[in-house]
Simulated assay, not measured.
Amino acid sequence: MNSAGLSSFIRPLGVLVLLATIGSAAAYNAATAQENTTPDATTTYPAMDAERGKALFAERGCVICHSVNNVGSDVAVSLDVSNMNIAREPFEFFARMWRGAPQMIALQQADLGYQIDFSGQDIADIFAFVQDGEMQEDFTEADLPAHIKEIIDNGPAIGSK
């Protein structure tokens, strides 16, 4: 085979190799994207219990800064379901909590004397409560433990309006 014949053979072969490489890269990218967007079969998410979340919201002291159904304080944003359109997705809700963590921890230390310890289940249940309008309608001052009501009545230590 002369050089012209060899050249005409190599060019199409090069194009085929290039196309195969591009195809392999595209298949790898598609597989990787699939892996990154599909939850692992072993991933579990907690069941959410709005009633338990209601109790936690009161007992743990969230209500010292946040209000629901006009019960609680106005130091921080109300968590009435009507205000939750900005955080209906649980991970967005958690991200907003994370961004406010330094302020929440400072308020907890000032008002309660300790930092509230939440489990993933606790947060899931509180999220369920702040998404449940019917459960919120039943939330009253009678749901507040005496020590939490006293803090609200006296005004939170810092950040109050």
Rank of each mutant, 00 (worst) to 15 (best):
E150G: 09
L13A: 14
G120L: 06
L19R: 02
M1R: 06
V75G: 04
Q121M: 05
I86P: 00
A142D: 15
I10L: 09
S119M: 09
N85S: 13
I22Q: 06
N36D: 05
G133K: 10
M104D: 06
E51L: 02
D80S: 02
T32G: 07
F93P: 03
A110T: 11
E35M: 13
L107S: 14
R88A: 10
F118R: 04
P102C: 08
A76P: 15
Q109C: 05
S24E: 11
A4H: 07
A41W: 07
D143F: 03
A4R: 07
A128H: 00
R52C: 02
L18F: 13
N29Y: 15
T37S: 14
T32Q: 12
T140I: 12
T43R: 03
G53V: 00
S67Q: 11
V17W: 04
Q108P: 12
L56H: 01
F91H: 08
F118S: 03
Y45P: 14
A41D: 05
M48R: 04
F139M: 07
F94Y: 09
A26I: 14
V15T: 15
R88Y: 09
D111R: 07
I126W: 01
A30T: 13
D117L: 10
T32A: 08
Q115F: 01
L18D: 04
L107Y: 02
Q108G: 09
A50M: 03
S7L: 11
L79R: 05
S24D: 13
A95K: 09
L18R: 03
L144R: 03
V68M: 02
G159C: 07
L18H: 01
L112V: 10
A110C: 12
P102H: 05
P39S: 05
I151V: 10
F93D: 02
V71T: 08
R99I: 14
T42N: 07
F91E: 13
A124I: 01
G155C: 08
D40N: 07
S8K: 09
G159R: 01
I126C: 00
H147D: 02
E51S: 00
Y28W: 11
F118A: 07
Q103I: 14
A20T: 09
K149Y: 05
